[in-house]
Each structure stands twice: as C-alpha cells, then as structure tokens.
Design a protein around this nucleic acid. Structure first.
Lengths: 307, 307
DNA sequence: TGAAAATAATGAGTTTGAATCATAGATGCT
DNA sequence: AGCATCTATGATTCAAACTCATTATTTTCA
C-alpha cells in the first residue's frame, strides 16, 4: 500500500489550481484533458477522498486537495532549484546574457523577467544592449548580444528562435473619432489619418510592415517615445496609434480611448527569443525563456503562450 | 527538454545513499538491482553528468548526486507528512494506540519509536498496556489493547500480523567459561548450567520454547528484571543468558562476556505487530509499524527487516 | 597476485500503466 | 430550452519501467 504519488501529479494539481480548469491545465502541461482526468481519478481512488468539488467552475479544491497543492507549492520550486544547480555544476556558474531589444513595449515585461532571472542566476552577467537596432539578430553574429527579442523568424540557419508569446495589436482612436463606429479598421482607413508611433524604422512597426506597406498606404507620421504620450495624442484627436492590447488595457477599461481590431481577423504579433544555435542549449538561456513566458503570462492580460 | 525527474528517482537515490549499494537499495525498495541501475543511467544521461563515482564501494556521490540526495532529504519527508495529513482528514485525527508488549528488550526500540510516533500523530492516545501477559493477542480481542508485539504468528483469522524485524539470539558466557571454546551451543550444553532469564513465563522465552523444551532440557533458573544485571551475573560465572545480539553488542565489543550461537544454525527471533484485522488498515497503525521498522533499522545493529 | 565472490552494467524481452482517441455525460450561459 | 463548453469514461495505443539472463567489473581473501 505504498504511495503512488509522483511529481507528475503535483505538477498537474498546481496547473489546475493556476488555470482553474482541467482543459486549460492540460494545455499548459502539453497533455490532454483526458490524461488529467485519469490522473485525478487515480489520486482520488488512492486517497479514497475527493480532491476537487465537482459541479462548480472554477474547480474548487477540497481540504485534501488544498493540502496536496500546498505540497506542490513547497516541492516544485525545490525541484526547479535543484535542476538549476545541477546545470550550474555542468556548465559553470558564469556566463553572459546581453539582451538586444527592438520593441519599446517589451520593457514592460522584460524588467520583471530580468529581476527574476537575476535572483536565480546571480553569476550570469546580465545586460541590455542599448539603442534600437534595425537588425538585432546581426548583433548575435557580431557577438555583441547573446539573445535578441524579435517579432519574426527569418530563416537563419545559425540562429535558434524560441517562441515567447503572441498578442493582439489594436488601433487606438479617440472616443468620438469618425472611425470609432466601425467593427474593425482596414489599411485604407489609415490613408488620411496621422499615424502615431515610436521613433523607430518602419520594419520594426508591425502595423506598417504587415498591413499598411503591403496595401501601399503611407499615412502622415508623428512619433513619441512614451506610451502615455501616444495615448494623450490619440485622445486629443491628433491621430491613430497601434499598440499591444495588453499595454493599454488599463486605459481601455477606463474609457479613455477606444480600441479597434486591425483588419477583419485582427493583427497578431508574435515574439521570439533569438539565440545563436550553438549556445541555445545553455541552461540559463533556456531558463530565461521560461521566465519570460511565466512572468508575461502572469502580468500581461490576454496574451497567448502557444503560438 | 523538460524534467524527467520523478519521486521514484529521489526514493532510489536516498535508498542508495542509506544502504551504500544498488543491491541493498533495490531490496529495500522491492525492486531489482537492474531496475535501479537503469534508473541511474537514465538520470545521468538526462543531466549529462555522473551522479556516483563508480569503481568504489561504498558508492560515493558526485556533487550533482549530493545535490539530488539533498533534494530527496528535503522533499520526501514533506511527501510523507502530506500523506499523513490526508489520512487524518480521511480517518479523523484521533484514535488510540494501546500497545501490549511481551518482551523486556522490546522497550529498547519501543521508546524511541513511540517518541517519533507521538510527534507525527499528536492526537492519537498512546499508551503501553502494563504488565507482562502470557497472551497479549487476547488483549486485542478484549479491546484492552490496539496492537500487540509478539514473536510468533498463531493462525488467528481475525488478527493481522505485520512483520517488524528479525534478529539473532545468542547465548552469553563468561570469558573463561568451559563452553566458551565451542563454536556453538546445543540444547544439551544447557542441561547442567544455570539459565539466567527475565521473570516471565517459559512460553515467552524463545530459547526455552524453541530449543530447550523440545529437547527435554530444563536447567536451573535465576531471574532478574535488568539486562545489565544479567550480564553481571554471566560475567560472575553464575550462569548463561540468552539475549538478542543487538542488545548486548556494546558489551561484546568490549570483551565483557562472549557470545555463542545457539544450535548450529543459530536461533533467529522474529517480531510481529498483531492488530485486529478490521482496524489494520488505519493509517496511524500502519505508520506505527513503519516507524518501528525505521527506528529499529537505524538503532539496532545487525537486525533484518526482511523476514 | 590470482581466484572466488560480490556487485554493477548491459541488452533483450515482458509487462505495466500513462497517455491518447473517441464519445458520452454535465454544467453553465443567454 | 438549447447551444457551447467542460469533464468523465472506456477502449486502445504506445512508451517506458521493470525483470530476466548474462557479461563486465570490483572487492575480498587465500
């Protein structure tokens, strides 16, 4: 009558607690909903107790379930810590992580991710390659950066692209803007407007690169460094901006401006971490990618981890 | 490239550290040596590092192995604690554990086992049924005890016998005793000696019940309550005693008296915990049995857990 | 040092059981 | 009510954990 409990079960329980449903937990663990249901049934049979109050959404834990989740919260970080320590033994404590960033909004999630990383890998030299570069991947080849945050994959043989997350870009308009009545905006809608952007090359603006340029639309421009300034200009009817929905959700909730999808199907931006192929196996680089995904999923509303 | 580590591996590593060999660890885990060897190889491949320094006995851990064992030491008790808590949720905190003991030497391991038990199950009423009873199992039927420590299994249908451990009984003689030259003692050797025992009925003395009585040998007796007093009498050439080897190892190491096996193959005593069948499933009773086995294996030299 | 004994590693074969697939049953939402 | 979403169940598949049989290695002891 020995224990059947394995770490697998603890990971499942923690995921269910985090996501509130078997289906979403299964997705996160790259398993099927059925697999988790079977796991749960096995545990409940073994302990001869229910672990979740069924017939309720979100799934609610029983005291026994709570106890197991508390165990998971205690144990899983210890496991992760040990595996990091072993990677350090294998690869050495040190290393460098110079991050090249091309997008302004990236700093919103990059800072907390770097904080977490610094705590876990204190010996790794952590830095941001300053300035906005038209070709951040080039910095990898020149050994001026170890990792670049990019928004598309160019088929570079020597570069490994690790998916981070995806999110919707939305166009922002003044509440009383004539286009505010439309369900979504087309490229043509931008032709006679002023486009408010960050001061970066066109190739780095998803809206321009993926929508306006292909349609031959090239509106007037106005630039600013700050997201709040862009919102201020939009609200003052000085033009239209396009930003990640998560970066402006706060202002949308307060009715400060309105958001419209770009094109009928919306405009989805995808972010990747680009690394030199031969170093992509390094534990601290892979852990950085994991941290970014964790932190972003927790802090940015409405992003998708699967892309 | 996610973790393959499971609790199974941690249990294996801890067992190897405790026993110092794959073979003994496998025995303890009720697996084959081959299974553990495969497990280890899998782990070492996954971490791309050796976990043990081969070509040495006892097996010596590498730093990575040490780290994993440290993890096991941190995690496994948490698992056990959680499973106890769940059992308490299922069966209630309370209960009673009145222990009937028939052997004097049992107190040597019973006290520390009870201490550990009290820490883990503070709500269970813990008691020793005092006095030495000729039929401790009878106390179970009368509901005057919940568990009895006995040295043999009578085929009682309503009683469950959980094996505790086995050990060798040895005869103790003064260093210059005439029989001290023999390799082992037969029943006949006792005929003209004085047998020094605890003051209990003959049925409770393994030597008498299993060796002397069958051979029709009934030597003179002298009794005392205390083990040290028995050793004192033996050393003073007042007679021969028979005690568990583990209980007198300390004195043997110091050459205070000499020990001889009884009969050519020795006299092996076996201890069992007897419980009413219908209550044998209770988590705290099963945990008590586990605690006794753990504590005894750790404190009593030369006992066997498998019997 | 060399032979015998003990222990670990290896590879093939078997079995277990964890996951998936397909589907039925619940539950919640408008 | 009825549709959409989520969970449970049973059959099936498949990976991998274990055992068995054997070889290789290490330790012990004459």
């Amino acid at each position: 009558m020995q224990s059947i409990l394995e770490l697998r079960h603890l990971k499942t329980l923690a995921a269910i607690r985090d996501t509130g449903s078997l289906t979403r937990a299964a997705e996160r663990l790259h398993l099927t909903q059925s697999a988790l249901s079977h796991q749960l049934r096995q545990l409940e049979e073994h302990y001869a107790m229910p672990l979740f109050a069924r017939k309720s959404a979100p799934l609610k834990l029983t005291p026994a379930g709570e106890r197991l989740v508390a165990l998971a919260d205690g144990v899983l970080p210890q496991i992760a810590g040990t595996e990091r320590d072993i990677a350090k033994l294998r690869e050495g404590e040190a290393g460098s992580l110079r991050i090249a960033v091309e997008c302004h909004t990236c700093f919103d999630w990059l800072m907390p991710a770097m904080d977490t990383f610094r705590g876990r890998w204190p010996e790794v030299e952590l830095d941001i390659v300053s300035g906005f570069h038209a070709d951040p991947v080039g910095l990898l080849f020149d050994d001026r950066a170890d990792l670049a945050i990019v928004s598309d994959i160019d088929a570079e043989a020597r570069i490994h692209f690790a998916p981070l997350f995806a999110y919707d870009m939305v166009a922002l308009l003044a509440n009383d803007h004539p286009l505010a009545g439309k369900a979504w905006l087309s490229a043509e809608d931008f032709r006679d407007e002023t486009l408010i952007t960050y001061p970066v090359p066109d190739e780095m603006l998803d809206l321009v690169r993926q929508v306006l340029k292909p349609a031959g639309v090239n509106p007037k421009r106005r630039t600013t460094e700050l997201t709040v300034a862009m919102l201020q200009l939009v609200a003052s009817r000085r033009g239209i901006a396009a930003l990640p929905r998560w970066s402006v959700q706060h202002y949308l909730d307060r009715g400060y401006v309105v958001a419209k999808p770009v094109t009928e199907n919306g405009l989805t931006a995808r972010l990747y971490a680009a690394m030199p192929q031969e170093r992509a196996g390094a534990a601290y680089l892979r852990d950085f990618v994991d941290i970014v995904r964790e932190v972003s999923a927790a802090e940015l509303p409405g992003i998708q981890l699967a892309l």
